[in-house]
């Protein structure tokens, strides 16, 4: 009896050690970035877990040494435009896919899913030519346009899944009243799609906010860069001395809003992430 209780106790301790290890593993790197961003000079190269005299010098430096405010604004503009455009295109398409039985529906849906497997680099030269031809090189519009390649497939897919589950009676009633498809979509379905739109919109926002390869290739000047490119290209006085304090400060500035957003919408994000995968 006693041996069993001891064994249970040990199992419990091991379990909580495992939990502690998981938390440490997932949270520590970001904590360390925050701590490092508050240190300057020699303290930056030390290992104390709580900065002895924290300073905001790195944060001031990031905004003084480069157009980081502009970079943040660029990222906000691009991500917001990407969300608006892809939600509009996806919700109309999802109505067709989810509510109307037409020939070629399944192959078309699979083809769209196939686009999400495209490696970005596989369209890079064709996209570069297209963007130059449209006169969009080194502009934010080039990013909004090119980001459609990865936001559209999953917004269409997830919204279609949600649209399918809405009851058919609603639509029949609307049709009895003589409402056309556009009215049915905007008046009947759109209000019900709120939660799904928030989830997919959020995922599209994060994807656009984090994108790097297109942003690196299609913009040229410091003023047009988005946040990930700006952070990747921060350099110090010489090529051999990277200003780690400032890099960490910039990283914290762009990550904190994302983390807040993700924690607030935790449940929705988890269901959105898994809905696509479990059903697909």
């Amino acid at each position: 009896m006693r041996a069993r209780r001891v064994r249970r106790g040990i199992a419990r301790i091991l379990f909580w050690l495992l939990v502690a290890a998981i938390v440490l593993y997932t949270v520590f790197p970001f904590y360390w970035a925050v701590v490092s961003s508050l240190k300057t000079g020699g303290a930056l190269f030390g290992t104390e877990l709580v900065p002895r005299d924290p300073t905001l010098e790195n944060y001031v430096g990031v905004f003084r040494e480069q157009p980081f405010g502009r970079n943040i604004l660029n990222s906000v503009i691009v991500s917001a435009a990407v969300v608006a455009l892809s939600l509009f295109l996806a919700v109309t398409a999802a109505y067709a896919f989810g509510r109307v039985a037409f020939r070629g529906r399944t192959p078309l849906l699979l083809a769209i899913l196939g686009v999400s497997m495209f490696p970005q680099v596989a369209v890079l030269s064709g996209m570069f030519e297209l963007i130059r031809w449209l006169g969009l090189y080194n502009s934010l519009a080039s990013l909004v346009l090119s980001y459609m390649i990865f936001t559209l497939p999953f917004t269409v897919w997830v919204l279609t899944t949600f649209m399918r589950e809405l009851p058919a009676e609603l639509e029949e009633a609307a049709m009895m009243d003589g409402a056309g498809p556009w009215t049915t979509l905007t008046r009947i379905f759109l209000p019900l799609m709120g939660p799904a739109m928030v989830t997919t919109g959020l995922l599209a926002f994060i994807a656009a906010w984090n994108e790097f390869l297109f942003a690196l290739t299609f913009t040229l000047t410091n003023e047009m860069r988005t946040v990930p490119v700006a952070i990747a290209l921060i350099t110090g006085a010489s090529a051999f001395e990277l200003p780690w304090g400032r890099i960490m400060a910039a990283s914290v500035v762009v990550t904190v809003p994302l983390i807040v957003l993700v924690l607030v919408f935790q449940r929705r994000i988890v269901s959105g992430l898994t809905a696509g995968a479990v059903k697909g």
Partner: peptide, 15 residues
Amino acid sequence: MLIPWAIPTVVSAQM
């Protein structure tokens, strides 16, 4: 668990 997922890849690489 969602924190590493939410952090941009570029930021993770720098961190």
